[in-house]
């Protein structure tokens, strides 16, 4: 077990800064998720921690020791699972799992024992004699995890390990992964661009954009209390509504943000609830079973053109017709204010 500390890390490819000044501390035993859109530098950051990429500037510390300069990957005490799983195609599952132990010259008896134990934990004991090509995607993923964990890494690095699985398998695999991590308590850094994975798995989530960490916090904090408009619109499906204010209610250049699920018919809210009301002209209703999505505009605002979304759970039966306008409202405690030029949150 170890903490990982990243200080002002930068990495340049050609003329692009793939990682552009990241400060991040991953606590001992924590499950940290790096979440961000494609190309934001998640993989590069992860590979820098692993030592596969040499940073252009900055420091990386594992367990308090500086590693970025001259500790090669094999001595960093890390394990990594690639998106492709990178199983050695010409070795059996057993040999794949045993590989890190053999590379570390572990005693023969130990290897046998550990491999069987780990295979048991991951439920792949039956496949030990097979070759990777004879396994399904989910089984390969478990072999890769198993190989990563046999030699008790201090830090486990995972780069979109579920991306190659189908949707159903991904759900169970996610659940298993979280259970294993709890059980062994290894510090884990997990890269994904799927926010459901990120929210479901992470003790904390780091939201990245264009090489920078925009916000670091628990899934709940990141969702409910975004630091800027990028985080606000990237996390959450459908994304947070952003309304440009120009009625003098706030300082000039203020954006008002509210989540679709807080944007409800006024009548649904308790009368005493302190809420901000809008006239909502519904253009289209999307019925999704558990929810209804309402797409429409706010005709009374200074810029009536942008589309806003309201998400009504099935428990709210209020009839809504396309083409009609209704009175909707957002509880004041669910409103966020942002600066429209910097995108940063205005608090207080």
């Amino acid at each position: 077990m170890a903490s990982v500390e990243i200080r002002n890390l930068r990495k340049k490819f050609g003329s692009v800064w793939a990682v552009d000044g990241v400060d991040l501390t991953i606590r001992d035993g924590e499950f940290l998720v790096l979440l961000g859109p494609s190309g934001c530098g998640k993989t590069t950051l992860l590979r820098s921690i692993a030592g596969l990429e040499r940073p252009s500037a900055g420091e990386i510390l594992i367990g308090g020791q500086r590693v970025d300069e001259d500790v090669p990957p094999r001595h960093r005490g890390i394990a990594m699972v690639f998106q492709s799983y990178a199983l050695y195609p010409h070795r059996t599952v057993f040999e794949n799992i045993a590989f890190p132990l053999r590379a570390a010259h572990a005693p023969r008896r130990n290897i046998e024992e550990k491999v069987r134990w780990a295979a048991g934990v991951f439920g792949i004991s039956a496949y030990l004699d097979r070759y990777p090509r004879q396994l399904s995607g989910g089984e390969r993923q478990r072999v890769a995890l198993c190989r990563a964990l046999v030699r008790d890494p201090k830090v486990l690095l995972l780069d979109e390990p579920l991306a190659n699985l189908d949707a159903k398998l991904r759900n169970t695999a996610r659940d298993e992964l979280k259970r294993f991590q709890r059980q062994i308590g290894t510090t884990t850094v997990y890269v994904t661009h799927d926010q459901i994975e990120a929210m479901g798995l992470g003790d904390r989530v780091a939201i990245m954009d264009r090489g920078k960490v925009r916000q670091l916090g628990t899934p709940q904090r990141v969702y409910e209390d975004p630091d800027d408009t990028f985080v606000a619109t990237f996390v959450g499906q459908p994304p947070m509504n952003l309304l440009r204010l120009c009625d003098g209610a706030g300082p000039p250049g203020t954006l008002l943000g509210f989540r679709p699920e807080h944007f409800l018919p006024r009548a649904v809210l308790r009368a005493a609830e302190d809420a901000r009301s809008f006239r909502f002209h519904v253009r289209r209703v999307e019925y999704l079973g558990s929810d209804r999505y309402l797409y429409g505009t706010l005709p009374d605002q200074c810029d009536p053109s942008p589309t806003f979304i309201a998400k009504l759970p099935a428990t709210i039966g209020t009839p809504v017709l396309e083409g009609e306008a209704y009175e909707f409202a957002v509880p004041v405690r669910a409103l966020c204010y942002f600066d429209s030029t910097s995108g940063l949150r205005r608090r207080g």
């Binding site: 692993a50 990957p73 094999r74 890390i78 394990a79 990594m80 492709s84 990178a86 030699r151």
Partner: peptide, 26 residues
């Protein structure tokens, strides 16, 4: 040829040289 097998071997405990001598030939 994707790099991942070679990188995986480096993470699993091989040096560059060991990767070149033992993993790359295949």
């Amino acid at each position: 040829v994707p790099w991942d097998i070679e990188e995986q071997a480096m993470i699993d405990g091989y040096s560059r040289l060991a990767v070149i001598l033992k993993v790359v030939p295949r």
